[in-house]
Every structure is written in C-alpha cells, then in structure tokens.
C-alpha cells in the first residue's frame, strides 16, 4: 500500500504522461500542416482552382482538372459504396448473429486490412483489362471497395449503440422487424452513420494506389467517366516526381488542398456528432 504522498506523485506523473502523449499525437498533424502551408500556400491562387495543367515550360496552369476529377471519382465511389456499406452494416448489427453474418464481418475486416494497391490491381484485372482502357469508373469501383467495408463496420458499431428499448418500443407498436431496423434504429444512429461515411470518404479521397491502375490520371480537363481522369493524389504524385520546379510548387499546393478537404470533412463529421449529443 503506497503512502498518500507517493500515490499523489504517481497520479500526477501519469496525468502528465497522458498530456504528453496527447501532445505528441498532435505534432505530426501540426508539422504537416505547417510545412504544407509554407510550401504550398504561395502557389494557391485563382488559377490553381480554375485552370487545368498547361504544357511543360509554359508558366501558370492549375489543378482544376484534378480537383474536379477527385470530386467525380470519389462521388461515384460514394454512390456505389455507401449504400452497400450502410446496408451491410445495418444487416450485421441487426441480423448478423448467424454464420452468414460472421462471414460478412470477416470479409469486411479482411478488406479493411488489404493494402489499397492490391485493391487497385484487383480493379485493374477485373474492370480495366476486360474494358481495354483505363476509366474513371474503374477508379471509383476501386475506391468503393475500400469505402464499403469501412462504412459497414462503423455503421454496425453505431447501430449497435441504439438502445434495445427503442427497438422493443417500435416492435411493440406493431412495426415489422425490417421497418424497425430501417426507420427507428437507423434513424436514431443516423448522426453516427453520417460521421462514419465522412471519415471513410476522407480516407479514400487521399488514396493514390488504387487509382494508379484504374483512373490512371489525365493532364486534361475531363468529366467523362469512361475515360482516364485526373485526381488530386495522382496529380501530386506525378508532379512531385517530375523534374520541374513549377511542378513541385503545384504539387505542394495540391497536397495542401487535399489535406484541407480531408480536414473539412472531418470537421463536418465532428459537428454532426456534437449536434447528436446536444439533442440527446
């Protein structure tokens, strides 16, 4: 049995250690942001958002084609992946007790642990090669394969948090089981599900590897889903590897835009969760 004084010292030391760990966790994010701001902010101008790439040697040009490409590819990936993910998550939480549920959960966890480049290769083998060309759609499918299992597992966790008493209340009022799950349960968990989706979107928006063999990238402005398309991470990758000073500057700016996009999504997710707590 430690003396009160010792206990106080140990307690203070432990509290200090947790503060230290929390501060350390913030350091990388702060360092990245500072670096991106110093190197990239200078290149952010109106042209960067409104103009596409220009031929090498010509000054100016921007990332408009990559920004629009990312929005398109990620948007289509959401249209494919979120319904599947949310549906699977509700299934897992509400009816996933049996063997099939176990299999789905196992597959989702395996997919979540699969390196994204493997998913890119998969999409290349199954979509790009049979189609004979790189397409934005193939990129979306690859991203959807990452998105859906992530969303499924977070949705499952959120739906599990809904108190059983609410389920029983709806059932006792004469609700069919599926309707209880879809309306009462899913609606109560809505804020959490939205948060999970936003976090997953932020994750796939920054993915490069699955797009390398699928969307390929494009120096020109395109909104055609059946043609190769540019995306922020791809454009950053290409420009960062390139030999030109101008490209490097723009790659930094692109990285800044990408991380701001992710931060905005994260902030929206935070606000969504907070309003849930206020309502409760």
């Amino acid at each position: 049995m430690a003396s009160p004084a010792t206990r106080r010292i140990v307690g203070a030391a432990m509290t200090g250690a947790t503060y230290g760990a929390a501060a350390l966790a913030i350091v990388p994010l702060a360092a990245i942001l500072v670096m991106l701001l110093t190197r990239g902010a200078g290149s952010l101008d109106w042209d960067f958002f409104t103009r596409s790439a220009v031929p090498v040697g010509e000054p100016g040009g921007g990332f408009a084609h990559a920004i629009v490409g990312t929005l398109l590819v990620v948007g289509v990936a959401c249209a494919i992946g979120i319904p599947i993910g949310v549906g699977a998550g509700i299934f897992l939480a509400e009816f996933g007790g049996g063997r099939f549920g176990w299999v789905v959960r196992f597959v989702a966890d395996t997919l979540n642990g699969t390196p994204s480049i493997v998913i890119g290769i998969f999409a290349w083998a199954w979509i790009v090669r049979p189609a004979g060309r790189f397409t934005a759609l193939a990129g979306s499918v690859a991203l959807a394969c990452i998105l859906a299992p992530l969303v499924a597992r977070t949705t499952e966790e959120m739906v599990r948090l809904v108190p059983n008493s609410l389920r029983e209340a709806a059932l006792a009022l004469g609700y069919p089981r599926w309707r209880t799950s879809l309306t009462v349960v899913a609606r109560t968990a809505r804020a959490g599900i939205v948060t999970g989706c936003l976090v997953a979107i932020a994750r796939v928006a920054g993915e490069t590897a699955p797009l390398l063999f699928t969307a390929l990238g494009n120096q020109f402005f395109s909104t055609n889903l059946l043609q190769p398309i540019a995306a922020l991470p791809l454009q950053i990758y290409v420009y960062a590897l390139g030999p030109y000073e101008e490209w490097h500057r723009q790659a930094w700016a692109g990285a800044l835009v990408l991380i701001l996009l992710v931060l905005i999504l994260g902030t929206i997710a935070r606000v969504a969760t907070r309003s849930r707590h206020e309502r409760a």
């Binding site: 008493s165 209340a169 006792a172 009462v184 409760a280």
Partner: peptide
C-alpha cells in the same frame, strides 16, 4: 408499456 420510458427521439 415498458419499465423505462422509451420515447423515440
């Protein structure tokens, strides 16, 4: 009617 009041949100 249940033990704990359980209105929907």
């Amino acid at each position: 009617v249940f033990q704990k009041p359980n209105p929907f949100p």
